[in-house]
Design a protein around this nucleic acid. Sequence first.
RNA 1: GGCCCCAUCGUCUAGCGGUUAGGACGCUGGCCUCUCACGCCGGAAACAGGAGUUCGACUCUCCUUGGGGCUACCA
Length: 467
Amino acid sequence: MSESVKVRFAPSPTGFLHIGGVRTALFNWLFARHHGGQFVLRIEDTDHERSTEESITEILESMRWLGLDWDEGPYRQTERQELYSTKVDQLFKEGKAYRCYCTPEELDQKRNEAQKKGLKPKYDGTCRERSDQPEGAPSVIRFKAPLEGSVVVEDMLRGKVVFDIAELDDLILQRTDGSPTYNFVVVVDDADMGITHVVRGDDHLSNTPRQCLLYDALNFPRPRFAHISMILGQDKARLSKRHGATSALAYRDMGYLPAAMINYLARLGWSHGDQEIFSREEMVKHFSFDSVHTSAAVFDPDKLSWLNEHYIKTTPPEELARHLEPFLISSGILQEGHGLDDAEIARVIPSLNQRAKTLIEMAEKSAFYFKKEVEFDEKAKAKFLTVEAKPLLEKVIAGLSELENFSAEEIEALFQKVVEEEGVKLGKLAQPVRVALTGTTVSPGIYDVILLLGKEETLNRLKKALP
RNA sequence: GGCCCCAUCGUCUAGCGGUUAGGACGCUGGCCUCUCACGCCGGAAACAGGAGUUCGACUCUCCUUGGGGCUACCA
């Protein structure tokens, strides 16, 4: 690992951070951490129209939730205007850029005409050699790109990708209002920040030859590139809002664990043999672009859900309790300032973590532990809290009252005894008790429920539920 | 339209010239069982098509087809 590594994630704040963006960030992060390099966060807010502060806040919140920590930044391009101006001037003075007075309308028209004739809809170079400077006419600054030859992009994933320069045109570096454009600032920033490896979505692959030309013109060394594939929806179209939840925070709010999201996204396009479950450390240790592949991947909510279940099962209860607590509050099961600490919430987790797909589900299923009053499902009550069940319940009440240790073993022994004496199946006893204690026919194992509720609370609820 | 990228079960993938084409999600049959789950055992399910190269192609080359991206004073 002699080669130094500095990478960046550069989202534009024109909306929430979506899953595709997260994976790009993740691959950058993994690559940096694997090589002991630097990970820079840069906000590409050159589009004044569409950039918002809320988006920036949400992006940062998403990154923190996912544990994708950055070493530098967040930089904001709006704060670096001076640098861009300097570089535009430099190119201009060196004759590598020129003013273009064509109006957007004229350009539109030219494009349409070219397309009609079946020609490339690229800029025709009208102002390229123009020497006059129309007084007061608005202008942009264009890059004077080479006219022929080819650009070879060395991509870590795809090898050499060759582009014919004739396909490219003179891109705009600076708009009429003086603001710089994306393809230009990316190059200036990546070079200025010393980015060694540009890892981004393959929707940028076609932009790369233009950027390479810019690197050359500015006398910057080109970085190495890795264009990772896109994430698609079930219909194989690029993932977008209409595919349902696509923002990172939406998954947090639906009760997904960051570990599940990270693990899922890591395995989309990257693999390490047959391994499916990776801790952060394992991912960092094994991550390499050698084992990233290049075809687009379809987002599969089912597999994400499976991983979420896995992490709910395996996260230590006290740690999971910290994630669960906000959901206990948002679902109204606990009040703000409830006074319970993580350990107290964690008590109930071992009985629930095998039966919840999300934290929301887990919170809902834990309601009967935390709520003072049992909320009865009327159908369950009518079916199980019957006069036939009454003697059984009474025996359990009497038996539990006399238990000395109130252990799982003792409780189970008591149930066995009652069942034998009454000559019924365990279900005949367990279900009425379950309904009495939880209000429903579905719950964790009945001995766990009794144990967790405690002797006093259990007896209270049983007595109260007696038909 | 032009240019570029991509192509193994429905999905995520392993495979890197010789395999009964493996794993995972999902689906499905069964077992376990106090409910619901978990778990365990089993099953169905793929090399897009066509030419080459080769003793031999999922694997290498080309074409076709299909999907995606770029082609903005968006990023």
